[in-house]
Design a protein around this nucleic acid. Sequence first.
DNA 1: GCGAGTTGCTTGATATTTGAAGCAATCGGT
DNA 2: ACCGATTGCTTCAAATATCAAGCAACTCGC
Lengths: 162, 162
Amino acid sequence: MILRAEDPETSLRGEEHESLRLWLRLFTCTTMVEREVDGMLKRAFGSSLARFDLLAQLHRAPDGLRMTTLSERTLTTNGNVTWLVAALQREGRVSRRVASEDRRAAVVRLTASGRRHFTAMARAHESLIERLLRPLAPSERQTMYTLLGSVKQGLRHVRTDP
Amino acid sequence: MILRAEDPETSLRGEEHESLRLWLRLFTCTTMVEREVDGMLKRAFGSSLARFDLLAQLHRAPDGLRMTTLSERTLTTNGNVTWLVAALQREGRVSRRVASEDRRAAVVRLTASGRRHFTAMARAHESLIERLLRPLAPSERQTMYTLLGSVKQGLRHVRTDP
DNA sequence: GCGAGTTGCTTGATATTTGAAGCAATCGGT
DNA sequence: ACCGATTGCTTCAAATATCAAGCAACTCGC
C-alpha cells in the first residue's frame, strides 16, 4: 500500500505539505524494500520477513524472550506473536517453556536449528540491504540514520504527548 | 515486524553494517507511523490505510484507473486489489465499469461519496503526519526527501540490475 | 481471419494479521 | 489468607494479503 504522490499526477502543490510528501516517499521506499526482502526470504529460505524479524529478536536475546516482549519489539499484536511462535515451533526454529517466576508467562528461545537458519538468512538479508541502499553514500546513510533517530524518538511520546 | 538493532543488546559492531542499521531504523519508524495512521483511520473513519491508499490513487486520477494500475501503484497483488475494490464498492466509495477499449479491463473511479470520504480522511491524515514528523526541521525533511529519492530511484532497477 | 501466445482480472485455497474476549496466575492491599 | 485489579497469553472470528490457477478477451504473425 503506497500513497505515492511524487509522480507527475500529484495533487500536492508546492512547498506546503512537505511532511506529507516525505511520508509518502518514506512509505513507498520502505514498502518496496520490504517486498524485496520478504520475497527473497520466501524464495530462498521458505521463510518470511515476519519470521525473520522474530528470530532476529531472539537471536540477540540468548536467554529468550517473553511473548509480550516479542510483540512489543516486533510491533505486532500479541495474538500474532502467539501464532508466529506456534508456526516457528512446528518448524523447529524456536522452543518455549513456562517461565519459572511466573506460570502465566512463556519464555521463547532459538533452537540450534533456528540459530543456524537465522544466521544464513541474516547473511542474505544483509547483502540484499547493502545492495538496495547502495545509492546512498556512507555519509548520507549516516545523515538519514540520525534524522530518523529524532523521528523515532518523537514517536515514543505520541500517545501521551498530543 | 521490526528488526531493531539499535538497542544496547545489538549484535552489530561498529561502523560496518551501516546500511543494515539504517534499514532497521527506517523499517521501525515507518511501521510505527503506519500503525498510528492505520489506527486513526480505523477509529475515526472505519477505514484503513490500505483503503485510504487506494482511494488516494483514484483521487488523483479523475478519469479512473485500471485494476492493474492500482495494484502497481499501491504495491500490492492484483488479487488484493480485486478484493479491496469489491469492498469499497460495497461501501459505495468507488464505482467500476468495463473499459470501452478493452472488454477485459475494468476502470475504477471514486464516487461522490468516495470523494467526500477521502477528503475528510486526507485532512486528518495530513495533520497526523504533520504532527508525527514535527521533530524534523523543514530543511531536514527536505534532506531526507532527497536522499530517499535516490533510494527510490535505485529500487526501480533492482530486478534487472543485480 | 486463425491459432498461439499475452494480458487483465477473478477465484479459491492459504497464510497472516488484527481486535476483542476469555482464562488463569499474580499482585496489592487489607 | 482473601478479593478485586492487573497482567500474560490464547482463542476465535473477521479482515487482509498472497500465490497459483483459470478464463476470457486481446495481439500478432501468418
